[in-house]
């Protein structure tokens, strides 16, 4: 039906042999034959379907008790009816071996076959979870606590050039900076939500760098670094201009420790 490539056929055979060896007697069982009909109708044994929830929090891994082998026979009463028309139990689907689909369950499709192998689906990732180093979080927090804020500078929609008001505010901040020439300045650029995420990262950086350039024009010689958060950290999220303008800003902080 579907012709596997030579290599994948080899692979299938190898995995199949391993499967036969590993599962031993299991592969000889007729999985259609037994019945647990009475048990599976026991409402008290039923529980919530695992992973049946759509994109909420992390899923609950609610594992039920093993119920033995199931049956596709008629209501579990006629034994080996299974998926075969004659009820012989000689299902073309009886597992002769198990095909592993790999650590993340992504083996190639195998096609429909009579007497096809059983395919084993492993767990889905992530197998492990990557956590940030605790010192990362701690140092960020300490740094943020030592900052002193200067007046925000606001920008027009889609623009990164400074307004006259923005220049005026920077001139006022310049007085403080000249008195504290060693204070390290961080300028963060932000945007409103009406630009796309990735372009807003660039636009925010342009706003921050334009602000830095103007401070230099004012004769500020403090060390300055720039950053951009695009529209990732909004000061308000209403969808009107009275909110949008507050997000189109350059936010200046200095290290108050110096």
């Amino acid at each position: 039906m579907i012709k596997p490539h030579g290599r994948s056929l080899q692979w299938v055979i190898i995995v199949g042999l391993i499967g036969v060896l590993a599962l031993g007697g299991c592969s000889k069982k007729n999985v259609m034959a037994t019945s647990t009909g009475a048990e599976s109708e026991d409402a008290s044994a039923k529980r919530k379907a695992p992973g049946g929830q759509r994109s909420g929090g992390p899923e609950m891994l609610d594992k039920g008790p093993g119920m033995g082998e199931g049956s596709l026979g008629e209501g579990g009463t006629k034994g080996a009816a299974g998926l075969r028309p004659d009820g012989s139990g000689e299902s073309g689907l009886s597992g002769r071996s198990t095909e592993s689909l790999g650590p993340i369950g992504t083996g190639p499709l195998q096609g429909f076959n009579k007497g096809s192998r059983e395919e084993r689906l492993g767990d889905t990732p992530p197998m492990m979870i990557a956590k940030a180093e605790p010192q990362d979080l701690e140092s960020r927090k300490t740094r943020d606590e030592n900052r002193r804020e200067l007046a925000d500078i606001y920008f027009a929609f889609d623009k990164w050039i400074l307004s006259e008001e923005g220049k005026k505010n920077l001139a006022e901040s310049a007085g403080f900076l000249k008195q504290n020439p060693g204070a390290k300045i961080v300028i963060e650029g932000y945007c409103d939500e009406r630009g796309s995420r990735e372009y807003n990262l660039v636009l925010g950086e342009k706003r921050a760098k334009e602000t830095r350039r103007y401070l230099a024009d004012l004769g500020i010689q403090n060390p300055v670094s720039v950053a951009s958060f695009g529209k990732e950290r909004q000061v308000c999220t209403d969808r009107n201009e009275s909110c949008y303008w507050k997000n189109r800003r350059a936010h200046l902080t200095v290290d108050a420790g110096k």
């Binding site: 695992p50 998926l83 689907l93 429909f112 076959n113 689906l121 767990d123």
Partner: peptide, 21 residues
């Protein structure tokens, strides 16, 4: 008649994944 079939086995929480496959 049947063309063929598929058999998937795995952890219970993979039931939806089996159906997707």
């Amino acid at each position: 008649d049947e063309v063929g079939g598929k058999r998937y086995v795995g952890p219970p929480k993979m039931a939806r994944t089996m159906m997707h496959r």
